[in-house]
Design a protein around this nucleic acid. Structure first.
Length: 218
DNA sequence: GCGACAG
DNA sequence: ATCTTGTCGC
């Protein structure tokens, strides 16, 4: 699929932070799509020994959730991990994988946050702009903000608040199991994002597309 | 200054 | 993310 070139990846930490503030203004936080028939899950694995990152994209049909296409690409590691700048470590690794994807996914689910980020520009937002595709951030732990514990049954959720605004939701995807943190990436609203995360989840805490990508990103 | 901090 | 054994439960 096509990937936009919005900027260079050769940036200092301060430049990256300024870039996030600028690009955050371009994020569309309401539903801006017609029909979702394919969903793509992504994940990146690292091998510190050889300094290589392995990105995996798994496209599945929706709502059937059957694998349509899988792509795996290995590239050199660009940066070390810095909280708040995850997209500058993962996006460069994911871009080549998306470029090699034949299917044009209608929705992308990321392993990380979207709007629930210090500058409202997590990995899901960044990827959404680069791909110009609806994206959802689905993280396994909280980065910023606060929320109360959602009910123990699948489907129950609570909002994540920060500086007086709702930036995402803590969602229980499986009975009695630790919840996930959902937030808007790009071109989608929070309530739709929650619906799709539930629609992509079966008998596991994580979304099926991301779970498959996890297994591939070795 | 102190503590927190997606993967 | 990654390094790691056994163990509890569906």
């Amino acid at each position: 699929m096509k990937v936009k070139t919005l900027h260079s990846w050769e940036l200092s930490q301060t430049e990256a932070i300024e870039l996030q503030k600028t690009l955050a203004k371009r994020i569309i936080t309401r539903d801006n799509f017609s029909e979702i028939n394919t969903v793509c899950g992504v994940d990146v694995g690292y091998d510190k020994k050889v300094q290589q990152a392995t990105a995996a994209c798994v496209v599945m049909s929706y709502p059937a959730l059957e694998v349509i296409e899988k792509v795996r690409v290995t590239t050199p590691i660009k940066l070390h991990y810095i909280p708040g700048l995850l997209s500058f470590r993962e996006a460069p690794a994911l871009i080549p994988a998306f470029a090699r994807l034949k299917t044009e996914p209608d929705l992308v689910i990321c392993d990380g946050h979207g709007l629930s980020h210090p500058r409202r520009f997590g990995l899901a937002c960044h990827l959404g702009l680069l791909l110009d595709t609806p994206t959802i951030g689905c993280a396994k732990s909280l980065l910023i903000g606060s929320c109360s514990e959602p009910g123990v049954t699948r489907g129950s959720y609570e909002y994540i608040w920060d500086t007086g605004e709702v930036i995402g939701a803590v969602l229980r995807t499986k009975n009695g199991v630790k919840p996930v943190y959902v937030s808007t990436g790009h071109r989608i609203g929070l309530s739709s994002a929650i619906d799709f995360i539930l629609g992509c989840t079966r008998n596991h805490r994580l979304t099926e597309p991301v779970r498959y990508a996890d297994l591939d990103a070795v």
